[in-house]
Design a binder for these strands. Sequence first.
DNA 1: CTTAGGG
DNA 2: CCCTAAG
Length: 690
Amino acid sequence: MCTECDGYRKRQQETISIPIGQTGMTEQQETSRSSVISLSSIVRLLVQSYVACGGFYMEAIFAVEEKDERWIEESFDGNTSSPSSQNQIADPVVYKLVRVEGDGRLVPATDDEVMEVEDLLEDEKADLPLAVDTGQAEVPLRNGGITSVGSTLEGSEGFGQSEKKEINAEKLNARLEYIGVMLRKVKEEERLRLSCESADCSSDYMNLDGKCSDQHEKLSISDEKLQPENTLPEPLPLPPTRLSCSDANDSGSVETCSKPKDGSMDNGSSAISNGLKHEFSGLKGDICLDNLTTKELHETFKATFGRETSVKDKMWLKRRIAMGLTNSCDISTTTFIIRDKTLVRNVEESGRDADGSVNMGQNVVKDNSEESPSNPTTQMEDWKLVSDKRLRKPKVEYDCKLEDNQTEQRALKRVRKPTRRYIEEISEVEFQECTGRTTFVTREDSLGGSGVQVPYVSRVRRGRPRKNFMALMKFHPSGMGVAAKLVKKALGVRVSRPDIDNANRIWRSGSNPKQIQQPFVVEIENERRPLVTSTVEQQRDVEQVNLDSCGDNSDDKIAIAPTTRCGTRRKHHRAWTLCEVTKLVEGVSRYGAGRWSEIKRLAFASQTYRTSVDLKDKWRNLLRASFAESPGDKRMRSSRKHASVPIPTPILLRVRQLAEMHAQAVPGLTSSNLASRAVRNLHEASSGYL
DNA sequence: CTTAGGG
DNA sequence: CCCTAAG
């Protein structure tokens, strides 16, 4: 065995004897304590020691105090240092409750802790776990070792005098055997784990304080999640698992996802998709979740948590995985590069190191999960996000310097916190994990005090309930069909068109004519608009539409109609006309991109169906188009399937011009792309291509 | 309510 | 175009 193991073993042994002298109490006080032993502490102690020593079993698991106030160490190798001739022992078993600290120290328990476990041993009626035959030689807690406790106690005449003590001893015995069984399980797992590793001795141990040898970086992460089903009160302090694809050194490595030095891996993410199929062991590399496809994320998720997920939301997946890998809930960034079980983050300003070398490392903030997160406002999401996010396939060549350049040109984006859907799914998952099954949760809906049970819908409407909900319910008092769907709709869940139509019909054919005066109209023209509109408002809308300056839109052409041109169209889609696009471009040039409400108000006053969000979306598309579909890009153009109203090049040029004026980041394009395109386009323009 | 950004 | 978080 390696010296470190031995050294540790020695240390452990020393530690065992520590509680005797370090309890901070007088020996009188110690002996006056009731007979309490912390089983969980013993388990932990044993497991930790076992793990720490890589197969060595702790010799002493607990201490016995004699009447003469000497401590005896009971050993599990069958030998006992307990003098059997001590017949003067009156209170032979005085156990001390100790807590095992992360670094392996034993700390005397507080009174509260004592209280917690007191009933463990003092409840006479407690069910004792079945003793299991643990006769195998390698089983840490052999019967011999355990019974030695009993025999020691019973064998000495002094013990027999106290029945109670005997009972306690028996109970203890059984419990210790139980512990032995648990330990065997642990050992099995440990053996499995170790068998995956190199035979290198140095890898075969693990310190209690969580530090580990380099070899242990290969430990499977999933192990951490699959802790011995159960019995351990707390997870063992496993070493930080390291997943570096670069052979970067630990001293503040600069690269976040560098090209591996050996050719063994094409890139980090392919390594992930392959290597993570089942576990992370053996993988060296930063995990760049940003590059992964949904499928890969699913695989990663499974590898991380040992179960499948049907969640498609990439952000959710990334966050969840990141949480799993970093063992932290603090995933406030939108960039997911994980190294050393920490999320690597990037801060905007790049600087130079003390040695003068360009240092991206300064930008990389390692956020220890233990520590509070650094100020979010100083954080930028990582440069990888924009540059690679839309390239579904990871780059084979990944050059930090390139990325560095791109960083500078990229506009700072908002960092969004996890969506509510994400949060709720998390809790849902946790709920499932607790109960083991999913139940259909309903809640008593408070809408209008109706007290109906509705399926629990995550996105609950905030604020006051819909005024007209009760009125609607009158027409469908029993059926949850339409009503429930409308509730859902009110709560933000999409409802199919027929349902809405149905609801309106039901409403209008209602038997209570009075309520029709205050109609409950489900807006069918544009569902983003409020569900409840007044007839007055509607009338106004119609009037406005009739004033449409472009003249090519009339409100009666509601979006549901299939277009003559291209068959079925998206339900609520209204194609942008050239006129509108022009107005939009004009508006942006006049008021600036981002001032969508202003543009909407001033330039799109008549287009009630265009919201400011629509304008924003359209502008985004225009930006994309203007840069992606430059005249030279035949490939791009031909790949376009439905060339619906191609936007005239001059307009696109104008868009690009505006974008560049406003230094707008172009979605889906890297800045290097952008730059080269700009140059090329300039060239083409000057050569009269346009 | 408006804006930004993911999908 | 939809959804939702951030202001």
